[in-house]
Write a protein that binds this DNA or RNA. Structure first.
Lengths: 201, 201, 201, 201
DNA sequence: GATGAATGAGTATTCATTCAT
DNA sequence: TATGAATGAATACTCATTCAT
């Protein structure tokens, strides 16, 4: 009544989001989702038909968020290549930074090569295209300096921070998700990008 | 006796290795393992006590392989920093390249932050130490240029190739695991390392 | 209004009829019925209260159709015994032939001895009475030549054709529901009836 | 211990037999089977893999019994056509009489035309072949007097007694499965057969 | 009349695990 | 060592039914 209980479909989706990101597709049962959402198990099927479709809805949510962020980033892009690349990576870093769970989800499913890789691939492909455009006029189409390698390197350096660092936080003795730590990582990325662009010139 | 059937414990471990790497912890059942190993389900428990312990044995196997490779790499290390870094990354690339499945396993478990992250953390920590030593005299202890950032960036660029590229192979229209493609990626990494070291000087 | 959508109660009943005849009581769900009728699931309950009552309505529908056909057949009956028997069987054959599904439904429920056998029994009893009257003056009340045996034999020979033959159609290589095949079966029945009546004389 | 608990696989099969015959495939759940057999639900799957395979095992059991009975009947066949036909029908009547449940099972599944009709069709086809041989030299290949019609009529008259009569027992006020009633039905069949054969001559 | 939401009990099937042999 | 048998709890998913609107 007090706004505590919004519509159940949304609650279910949100619970599924949390759980799939945390434990991966196979690690989550519908019962878990229902319990976390505080609803009846059957209701999950009422709204989302099947586990896989629920999962795809979660993925689709990110896909849309992803797409929008990058569309805006592309529109705002201005200045020279260097500025555009920095802008892109900043955008990506922000996005991943505020959707850690998504990073984990992607990383898990990519690594697993499950059946539902389709949507994830689309997700990545879309991201790749954006970067491709950014690099297109500077890099050779093929070979070790092709855009795809830079894409993989830069995107990987960004996303890996959020997936690996937590595992290493204890070793390093700090919290890699703190604002300070994120700012430091961001600075590292800027430094790396500058180094790479300098070398390209 | 006939050479055809080595000891069953090893067969089970090998089957578990295959399967866990391919489908993740939750994606594999003991029945799958037993079937793949061609043994009775109960025998899996006889030798490895529980599913989780079997999984940990698989992880431990990689830990050992990992450790040995890097110990040897450290011993063989010679020449200047540049040469040592190249050597390290080459070693890592070789290791991951010949244990794709391991890369996927690590990536999944890191992302999932499961209960058995302990071993994986040890695994990564060990790797980090090796790299730490290599960089120690050149990089500042803290800040965006600290060894840990380079470690994360370089290791990530290496391992990510083997986990992400397959998902993107279809998009790019080639097989990222072919010898030629791997050689190209290796060249990319060498180029990146050189760019970073140049910038550091 | 548009003629395309008659009243929904009727649509539901018709869908239920189709489905129950095709797949039996247990093989059909309310969801199936609603989908086939193109209405909301809850509406099925609104009109028919429960699954079992819906089923009984279907049965009742046949009961009425059945009753009417035989009432008319009895009224039209004229001529000697032979003619009357032929008339009855023809009527029955026509009825079953144009309601195959009904034959299957009856056969299933009779064999299953389900809870809703009551109506079916009434159905059969009514049919039996008609035949009883037809045979009454010719056959002994009891023993192997009692009317009930002839009823069972003749009705069974008729209905069985429509239930068994389809299963055997493939074996025999023809379509037992084709007009030609039905005519042949009808001729067989006439021949059998004549043989039996000859023997009775 | 006291012979009360023979091997569970057999208990499960027997329970499944009872239940499938009584309520049809869809009317029975594995839980029912397990409960009736007094075993754990999972054990049903341990022994029979799936519900449909369990069902097929039940069917196969009857198929074998059926086949054996008729093989023996064919071997014992002697005398003229009339004697052979009587022999066959007697054999069939005995078989069905001592396996009522089977009759119901067949009738249900035939009427339902379910997916598992294959085995049942084989069952019927086999029976048909036997009768075909018996009639072969007397009847025309095609038309209303073809063997298939006599097969359908005679087999139907036999099996229908056991499926329909119970539903009609109440109407007739006796127990159609009593010995006396069965003997009477048998006499009816004999009389019908004689009438038909007389007519054929 | 008509519907979307909701549910508790049920469906077939798989799970990791135990244990007697 | 090795295995067949056994199980309780879980899996995804469907069911008939109710009810507020």
């Amino acid at each position: 009544m007090a706004g505590e209980e919004p519509d159940r479909a949304a609650r279910i989706l949100s619970a599924a989001d949390d759980l799939f990101c945390e434990r991966g597709y196979d690690g989550v049962s519908i019962r878990d989702v229902a319990r976390q959402a505080g609803v009846n198990k059957a209701l999950v099927f009422y709204y989302y038909e099947s586990k896989i479709k629920l999962f795809e809805r979660v993925l689709a949510g990110y896909y849309e968020a992803h797409a929008e962020v990058f569309k805006r980033a592309a529109e705002d892009a201005s200045g020279d290549l260097r500025a555009r690349i920095h802008g892109l990576i900043d955008t990506y870093f922000d996005f991943i930074g505020s959707h850690h769970r998504y990073a984990r989800l992607i990383q898990q499913e990519v690594a697993r090569q499950g059946e539902h890789i389709g949507l994830i691939r689309d997700n990545l492909a879309q991201l790749f295209l954006v970067s491709h455009v950014a690099f297109a006029d500077t890099l050779p189409e093929r070979g070790p300096l092709a855009p795809k390698h830079f894409f993989l390197s830069l995107a990987g350096m960004t996303i890996n921070y959020f997936t690996y660092a937590p595992a290493l936080g204890e070793v390093w003795g700090d919290d890699p998700l703190s604002e300070a730590a994120q700012a430091e990582r961001r600075a590292h990325l800027r430094w790396v990008i500058d180094a790479l662009l300098d070398a390209l010139e």
